[in-house]
Amino acid sequence: MHGGHASLVLGLHRTRLAPDLLRAALAYGVTTVDTAPHYHGGTAHQQLADTAGDLLHRFAVCTKIGYHTTASGSNVHSLAPQRLRTAASTAARSLRQPPAVLWLHNPERSLTGSPVQAAVERLLEAAAVLTKAVERGWCRSWGIATWNPDEVLPVVAAIRGDWPRPGLVMARSGLLAPAPVLTAAERLAAQCRARLWGMSPFGGDTQDPVWREVDPRKFLIEDSTRWQAALRLALAVPSGVERVAVGASTSSHLAELLAAPALAVHSQRISSYRMLLERRSAAETSTAARSAGARSGSLSGSTSSGARL
């Protein structure tokens, strides 16, 4: 899974696939791609196989399970073991090779709101399915890809004893990721004893007005472009990120990003930024708690059927 640019993964969520882009990626040493069967209207696997052609076997393909397409064409999230088993076996066939990583995609969608023990049991069942998928040769490894690791962390922390842990965790990284997400990503990876990958280094949209106000280059010691700096910071925030999945629809854009991992960061400025984010998050949480307390001040005698996430 490690090419000449092992820190970069070509993310295909919004990438417009073309043969020349995949050839350029291989030439640059970017040999891992990240996708999901429900991307691009449910055609992502077929698009990748058709576009890559004979080059497909030269890529380590990471894909996801957890979202399932219904008869009406909509996607629903489920951790039902049989659905996950079917999705895991189908992924290997549709990609014409076992995925390098099979991600359990946004498990929080099926865990949040459940009693803690029920959520634990649901996650353990899913982990068992993915562990068995590795044993059956349907994938080479498995991990958890989560948009909100702060909602998955309490479930993992509640697991007692040994369990079939994921080898990887992937979460949002970079300057625009909220403080709770950054902290939870670090803790989730530690709880799982897993390696940490990042995603969405540009906050989902390079055209977001925030990028006209925030200059990521101020966190680097050396000169770079704005997007090189943003990507480099996604490898530094949260701490411990090994690789980042990033979209690039042209070979020239991908070429620009190649220099990012080698750029030197200003560690003190990054630490200060993290502290500011955490203080702001704490203040927002405190304000929300006071508001909730004021709204419920006239209520009394409420009961709960059990602890919930």
Score class of each variant (00 low, 15 high):
R217C: 01
L84W: 02
V241D: 00
L124K: 09
P166T: 06
L104N: 08
A189E: 01
V116Q: 15
L299G: 05
S291L: 14
E125H: 05
L56F: 10
L220F: 08
R109S: 01
V101N: 06
S281R: 13
T131D: 15
A230I: 00
L309I: 15
S304A: 14
T90E: 05
V155N: 10
G113E: 12
A71N: 07
I221L: 13
V237Y: 00
A25Y: 03
T15D: 15
G174N: 00
L17S: 07
E213Q: 15
T69D: 01
S267K: 14
V134L: 15
L12I: 06
V9H: 08
A27C: 00
M199P: 04
R172Y: 07
L196R: 07
T15K: 14
G306W: 10
C139L: 14
R274H: 05
H5I: 14
P166F: 11
A179H: 00
A60T: 07
S114I: 01
A184Y: 08
F202V: 00
P154K: 10
L276Q: 15
P115I: 06
R274M: 07
G73L: 09
G167P: 04
M1W: 02
C192T: 03
R279V: 09
R217N: 03
V30K: 06
V9D: 06
L48A: 05
V156P: 02
T287P: 00
P261D: 10
V241Y: 00
H266S: 12
L124F: 05
L56A: 09
A292M: 13
S286T: 12
G41L: 08
V76I: 13
E125G: 08
T112H: 09
E256P: 03
L258D: 01
A236M: 02
R212E: 01
V214W: 01
S141Y: 12
L26K: 09
L254H: 01
T225Y: 00
T303E: 07
T131Q: 15
S110L: 12
V246P: 00
A289C: 09
T225Q: 01
Q46K: 14
L130V: 13
A255T: 11
N148M: 05
V30C: 06
L257C: 05
G161I: 11
W142A: 10
P216E: 00
S286F: 12
R226L: 06
S7F: 08
A289D: 15
A184G: 02
T69K: 13
P115L: 06
I270F: 11
S74K: 13
V120Q: 05
H13A: 15
R23K: 13
W197Y: 14
L56S: 03
K218A: 15
L123V: 04
S89G: 01
A128K: 13
V237H: 01
R187Q: 09
E222A: 14
A100Y: 12
R195Q: 07
